[in-house]
Design a binder for these strands. Structure first.
Lengths: 197, 197, 197, 197
DNA sequence: AATGAATGAGTATTCATTCAT
DNA sequence: GATGAATGAATACTCATTCAT
């Protein structure tokens, strides 16, 4: 009966969905959620406005998906740094270098920053994001603790230091969003230096 | 009319204008520019919508004024730190402590962050903000240079260190916007510690 | 402070609201709810689209108000017929003649008919309308009962006869909506004749 | 292809077409034309959206077919009543009983009522429906005339009485659409009683 | 100057219709 | 023929801005 290949259809659907999220991430990161029109997302994704709604119920759902995927991706990334078979310094170096240049790093950072701080975002979402943010600090705190044990990192509460280090990275990333003029050419070692004794 | 009245009128006008900007700063910092309605600003300021337009030509003008005042205020603040008759450490302590708790610190930070990074903001504004931001790093760089001369701060390009320190503060401030749950109780000394040798 | 006359403002507001309802009643009665655009209502009322929303939260709220007012108006009307100092025949005559030609009779009938029968209307509304409809049959049943006591009307359950009579009127009214060609020139006596022995 | 297959194909096509109309009739009768989506019709008919368009050019064509079939069905039905080898009372009884309970009676009534009264329907359609409605009153008028000749029905213009009787039935049917709570249990004899002397 | 009602352009979302498979 | 993804025009609703009082 069906002239369609169910399996292929599903694959295409999944691809489309990713394609929309990818497009949405970049447009929203640059303009902010409320200033981004569905038409912007659609045209960035190269599809029609109506078709976006075949994959997501609303703009808010897209944002929610973006936030969740973003934090999941980040978690995977930071866990990977922790699991690295390397010195604490090298783990931190890898983290710093890669997140800074990572293709979606700045976009994820910008979106999560908005999700955490704007009252225009439903409170439940804000809370969930903050919670996961805190949770996602743990692997970083572990890396720092390792460095302290090894005697190379400054002493102090490793969790607090993780918060400081991550905040610094966020702050710096938000100063070098693509398209915005570069302020300084910071290299990972200059940032890590702050943690060194 | 007597000159006295003209003078008084002007004073009232200025007061009203500040009142609107004060209101706008707080609502915009919390919700973001596009999600903030003129009606929100008006009601926060305790005046009518129509009256807002007696003092500002448009929402964008309000935002522009906010951004300019914010950066001017910040400049005054950081210059004051530099001029302090104190050790580099104490200057930095004063800066850190006061900006963190300064009543508008977080609001100014949030607004400038939006002004710098959103493509929804006219490019000219973004550029002007970035330029002034860089310029405003100089007093901070000077403080750090003093500390390096005194042998207490880490070596390195003082301007880059200033950028890092300010970014860190911004990142941290954006994690502790009023109303958002506190993540950690960071005290100035913990932050300054990073710069110490 | 206020350069406005609060009292007059309120009066104007009330007038506007009625004006919108009046316009909405006619447009919706002719086209049906879903086929009626807010723009249709606005232009019929001679105001802008945006202004409609200053008085009603949504199209559905307008519809709800219409339905409630319509049934209230009808109740007043049928009670008035019952209270008339006249014979049962004359009461029925007055009712029949006036509702048929009553300026909003057909519109109210058309709207209530939609409210009762379309599944596109929220179930709660449908239920409330049906309930009030049944309740509104009572005065008519009373008139018929009077006629039966007087020996001029046919015997039978007066409530059922009321339902039949009202349904007949509704059916006829829906055949002579303004703009639709007249099918026959029915006069009240021809309709009442059915109830006579 | 053998003629046999062509014939069979045509039969299948007709069946499918009826299936769609049957589905459309029920959903449209319940929700009204504009509130009914093609998707609703398709899913009720158990086929895909695209396939509906293999059998009908547009939603409006479906509606037109529905209206025409409905009036044709009704005509056949009322003619049958007239041809019955029975007394005028029994003919009317048969008509009343069967149309009330006839499986599509209410749906046809609801759809024709919309077709006649909504300005959202093309004027040509409205006109055609009204014309056929009037024409379809004739068999009913004939039955009534027979009853008058037989001396059992009230005197008066038989056409007008037909209009009244049919309107009454329509009104009552629109009060007992399936799913809507029953108001009263009217039996045919109670309705016919109105026409009796 | 102050008010808030009025305007209408702008945007999210829906849905009839088309089309590639 | 059959399917359902894709398209884009249409419409409810919002909100910056204007204006009469």
């Amino acid at each position: 009966m069906s002239p369609r290949n169910i399996e292929k259809d599903q694959r295409l659907r999944d691809e489309r969905q990713s394609q929309i999220l990818e497009a949405a991430m970049h447009v929203i990161a640059r303009r902010g959620l409320p200033a981004t029109k569905i038409a912007d997302i659609a045209s960035q994704a190269g599809i029609s406005v109506g078709n976006v709604y075949k994959y997501f119920l609303s703009k808010d759902q897209i944002f929610k998906a973006l936030v969740e995927n973003g934090q999941r991706e980040y978690r995977v990334f930071v866990e990977e740094a922790l699991q690295l078979n390397a010195s604490p310094y090298d783990k931190l170096y890898w983290y710093t270098e890669n997140w800074l240049v990572y293709r979606n790093g700045w976009a994820i950072t910008a979106i999560l920053q908005y999700a955490r701080t704007s009252e225009a975002v439903p409170h439940e979402v804000t809370l969930a994001v903050s919670e996961r943010f805190i949770d996602n600090l743990r692997p970083m705190a572990a890396i720092i603790a390792e460095g302290q044990t090894a005697g190379i990192f400054k002493n102090g509460d490793s969790f607090e230091l993780a918060l400081i280090y991550v905040s610094m990275m966020e702050g710096l990333i938000l100063h070098s969003i693509p398209g915005i003029q570069e302020i300084a050419t910071l290299t990972p070692d200059k940032m890590i230096a702050l943690l060194l004794k």
